[in-house]
Nucleic acid binder design. Structure first.
Lengths: 197, 197, 197, 197
DNA sequence: CATGAATGAGCGTTCATTCAT
DNA sequence: TATGAATGAACGCTCATTCAT
């Protein structure tokens, strides 16, 4: 238990990842130097390069973590045993809540993806696509069932909603007039209202 | 007319601004070097610094241009002589069209704002705020008239729509299945449907 | 009378020289840009290069002016009709007063001489040498007459006094406890006392 | 002993400091480029910035070294067990000798201090002040004892002497007619003679 | 006489990464 | 495992000077 930890007992890789996440969100990927990350994590450069192949790998790990989390939650809501309106509403609200809860990761996600090398970028986009499609399937299911209007292509509906989710990191403030849940409910409500036949 | 131009006759400052816009959108602000900008514009560094105080000034100019354009267009639609639904629908569709028409500027706008120094950032945010508020006033006008639902605070409605506009640069492709106008109409339609009482 | 002047009627070359003198003294030769000089003088770069061949020429002109002035004054005191102690005392005090009165020029003189090109440097050193030698001749005259001690070589005596003159720009402040004349009298007194047989 | 050295075995920071000292003295601080320093030291720029935060830090280090040395020596002479005339004479001569022995450092000191940032400048001035005051205390001690004339304020006496010390780098040449010690003795003698009651 | 756009070389500094220990 | 000295390429920016007008 004395290995790869320091003082607080958190393993070095986690400490590095946490420091990198905070700094990338604060100042952006390019403006964060490896030196700053290792100082914030309380280790040396050698240690970082022992656990991560490059600065970019660190960024990819941040992505991988948030992508995994969001996909799991979406799957849980989407596959639940409930009417389609309810499942879509809950999934739509949940992505808002988890995005707010991980606003740092979200900022990085929407602002730093183009810093990944083409291959890694492609991989992230693919996972992102899977997420998008599971969400779209919900919309289409409701459209086929006649519960949702088919006036707008499902793809566009999904992008409409995700746009507002991405946008959260631009305007949401924890000390604002609305709680996370209220924001989530409102945004889910707007989506469902737009889909009324 | 032989002043400050070269070969094609376009003034040097414009050439620099155009080159910077394209490059900032392509690879991001931090990843674009001053050297690349001046090479793309066919001038030397000295010329750039003759017209612009810094690389950051170049970025601010890009912002200033697009902010001015969008504000003008919004004002025109918002102050038109037509029913409120119509005015909101047209304004909502128009911001989509002009964003697509200037997708480079838009990408820069939503991804590089945090690269501006605090003071310049503040100024841009202020102008942005003015735009947001003009749009919000339209929503509130409809809500007061009972034409739009008041279920969702107008602020949130505006952010919902603008989120999808920002998101355009992430997914819109000119060679996609929908034309600019179709995308604009769909997105405006989603907004109006969500606002039905 | 409307030529080469501006507003205040001072000829452009003088205005440039005055601006350069102030700025060179304030921030040093290398840290003063040609742009700053022309702005301070209220003219453009072209005007500067019309009257002066280079930035260095400006510096040389500053030197030439102060050298001429000091040489003239020394000659006047040295060739006066008075006992040698009196003539040396007055010359020694006068160089202190004129140095304090032109503290800017003096700072430049003692700090920026090595910025001149070899040829110009040589010329300035030569004129400086002439000044030194006229002063030394006074000391030697007194030594030969037995009025001054010969314990120290005259050269060294001169450097001893000039050292304190150069040093003035380091510590003299107009709002200090001593007036210019008091400082001058004290320093001349120290010299004369050191020379007592 | 194989760490941070190269070829000759001298540690890199020392090599950099030595190269910088020589070059700053030769051509002045502003005229010496970082590139020239690292080339003279046989390392790369990265190495310099590994050990020193900036070019200015290098200059400050030169100052710190000479200030420390001179203060130590002055303290030793001033606190010795000997009559006041003897202690002042020896201290006055010693500062001349050590200045000549480190003429490079001295040139830099008297010509480049204004290149330091305000904060660092202040620090250097403070240490310099301490030195000045220890020296002044010696003069005052002799004045109170009636051994030295009180005709001139002690402050001015100190500045008179230090002026000649600063001036050394302007005229002293190792191949001149006088040895270091002879120059030192003469200058100390002039000071003591000037202080005779 | 005077302008100011433009040059081009050089500046101090940063930084991801490597590697001997 | 982990260190930290060192690299080397690139970065944003400055500036004395030139020259067509």
């Amino acid at each position: 238990m004395a290995k790869a930890t320091d003082g607080d007992g958190t393993p070095v890789p986690q400490r590095l990842l946490a420091a990198a996440t905070r700094l990338f969100a604060e100042r952006g990927y390019d403006r964060t130097s490896v030196q700053e990350i290792v100082e914030a994590a309380g280790v040396t450069k050698g240690a970082l390069y022992h656990y991560f192949g490059s600065k970019e790998d660190l960024l990819q790990e941040v992505y991988a973590r948030v992508l995994r989390l969001q996909q799991e939650r979406l799957d849980a809501y989407a596959n639940a045993d409930a009417p389609i309106e309810e499942r879509l509403r809950e999934a739509a609200a949940d992505v808002v809540v988890t995005t707010i809860e991980n606003l740092d990761d979200a900022s990085i996600f929407f602002r730093s993806m183009h810093h990944l090398s083409p291959e890694k970028n492609k991989q992230v986009r693919m996972e992102r696509r899977r997420y998008h499609e599971r969400f779209r399937a919900l919309v289409e299911e409701g459209q086929r069932a006649g519960v949702f209007s088919s006036a707008t292509p499902a793809d566009l509906v999904v992008d409409y909603h995700f746009g507002s989710v991405h946008h959260l990191s631009t305007w949401y403030r924890p000390d604002g007039p609305l709680t996370q849940q209220e924001v989530a409910d409102h945004l889910a409500d707007l989506l469902l209202r737009a889909l009324r036949p």
